[in-house]
């Protein structure tokens, strides 16, 4: 008995529907699945099963596209609606969705852009995408009780430093923060800074992600704090003057950058 003659299993039906929903217009490898699936579907109307399958396929692309538009607001602003739609379409076709969480839809876009044809015209796109992805992580990450100055004082040099999960760091050679603050609707043509820019992303008091440029040593200090080193280990690793250190740590504690070590 051929596959076409037999009653389809639930798994076969679901895989064929997956292929029908995921297929892009220019992807022809699923055509046989479409034909096989259509034989098992019916509509009580003049519409063909293929037309009704199209409802799900379009919905799939729209939902993922909308999710990407929310996460990558600035990429969309730079590219414009049409080019952004093309980028989303190519990304969606190339990368299946592995998570139920639509907020995590764009996780692979920074990597995808590294080899994308749009990078030639906009070489800063992968870094901009990475920054926007960090905003998304910052938005969704949990927060734990923050380190308070009196707790820090109690531990002294042996204070274990752990960043809040919503704290993110990025090093880039592009003036991305200038780009984010730019009001103009014209497509910006950025030139590299000629020096690295160190960016801290964290949450403000309204739980919204914000970013700021920080000094290179401050960046390395925070990076080192990811490994749950003690205060003295972190300071030894990044030699900087004590006045700077005191100022940075006071500021970071005010911002709630570190977790309370007893949590």
């Amino acid at each position: 008995m051929t596959k076409e003659d037999s009653t389809p299993t639930l798994r076969d039906i679901q895989l064929a529907m997956r292929n029908a929903v995921r297929a892009g217009e220019h992807v022809d490898t699923h055509v046989n699945d479409h034909q096989w699936l259509s034989q098992h579907l019916e509509t009580k109307s003049t519409d063909s099963p293929e037309k009704r399958l199209e409802i799900y396929r379009v919905g799939y692309f729209i939902r993922r596209n909308e999710a990407l538009s929310v996460t990558y607001e600035n990429i969309k602003k730079v590219l414009g609606q049409d080019a952004f739609s093309v980028l989303c379409y190519e990304y969606i076709v190339a990368c299946g969705s592995k998570t139920y969480n639509l907020n995590a839809e764009g996780e692979d876009l920074p990597q995808f852009l590294k080899t994308h044809w749009l990078k030639e015209q906009y070489p800063y796109l992968p870094d901009l995408a990475q920054l926007e992805w960090l905003f998304q992580l910052t938005f969704d990450a949990p927060s734990y009780p923050a380190l308070l100055p009196e707790t820090a004082a109690r531990y002294g040099d042996f204070l274990p430093l752990t960043l809040q999960p919503h704290v993110q760091l990025l090093k880039t050679n592009w003036p991305l923060l200038t780009l984010l603050n730019q009001e103009t609707k014209e497509t910006p043509h950025l030139t590299p800074l000629g020096r690295p820019c160190y960016i801290l992303v964290h949450r403000d008091e309204n739980h919204q992600p914000i970013s700021r440029e920080i000094e290179p040593n401050a960046f390395y200090l925070l990076k080192k704090s990811r490994s749950r080193s003690t205060l003295s280990e972190v300071c030894e690793a990044v030699l900087t003057d004590p006045e700077h250190l005191t100022h940075w740590f006071a500021n970071w504690m005010q911002l709630g950058i570190f977790q309370n070590p007893s949590h």
Binding site: T9, L10, I13, Q14, L15, M17, R18, V21, R22, Y56, G59, Y60, R63, R64, G96, S97, K98, T99, Y100, L102
Partner: peptide, 25 residues
């Protein structure tokens, strides 16, 4: 309904065939 298959999330509420096999599952 089902909303994933073969490791892919489809982000939709896809209908099931009304069969005994689907009921058992």
């Amino acid at each position: 309904c089902f909303s994933n298959a073969g490791g892919d999330q489809l982000h939709d509420l896809l209908p099931l065939p009304h069969t005994d096999e689907a009921i058992r599952l």
